[in-house]
Simulated assay, not measured.
Amino acid sequence: MSEAATDTLSLLLERAERERDAAARVLHTAGQQAEAAHAQHGELSGYRQDYQQRWTQSFARGTTMSIVGCYQSFGQRLDQAVTTQGHVASHAEQRQVRAREALQQAELRVAALRQLIARRQADAAKAAQRREQRATDEFAARAHLRRTAHA
């Protein structure tokens, strides 16, 4: 394999490795964001459940219509917040899946380039070995001709 081809493949491999490393960082960040979004969704859901339990206990003791209205209004906003955070968590999870797929593709490119380089190096080594064998055979044949010519 020529030096120029080796240099080109080495540059391609370095670039693919940088892209793979960047994809790994993106996946890590996406994972953290998905985890945080799910945690916040869980906290909001837990808070909503606690709020409903507290309200049920308060309602059992009796309350006014204005307080019931406040409870319903806040409950609706809390439901919306839980739903919105569920969507945020879902989108974060989708970003994580896409980032994982991108990392897998980048890893495949790196592996393919490494395999190509190894194959090219093996081919070059075989070609060099054949040339060396040919030269050795040629030298031996000439030496034999010289010996037979002198004899």
Rank of each mutant, 00 (worst) to 15 (best):
R119F: 10
E14C: 05
T83L: 10
Q129G: 08
F59M: 07
L12H: 04
A22H: 08
E17Q: 09
A24T: 07
T148F: 04
R120K: 13
R25P: 00
Y71S: 13
R18Q: 14
A89F: 01
E138K: 02
E138I: 05
A4C: 01
R134K: 09
R15G: 06
A4M: 05
Q96T: 14
D50L: 06
S10N: 10
T83W: 03
L116P: 00
A34L: 04
E14G: 06
Q94W: 06
V68C: 13
T148E: 13
L12R: 02
V88P: 00
H38E: 13
L108H: 03
A5E: 14
Y47D: 09
E35L: 12
R142N: 08
Y51M: 08
S90A: 15
R134P: 00
L13T: 00
R100P: 06
R95L: 12
V68K: 11
I67P: 14
Q80V: 15
V88C: 07
D123T: 11
K126T: 15
A140F: 00
A92Q: 07
T63H: 08
R120Q: 10
Y51I: 03
H41Y: 09
A5T: 04
R109L: 03
Q33L: 12
Q76K: 15
R146M: 06
D50S: 09
S45V: 15
Y71W: 13
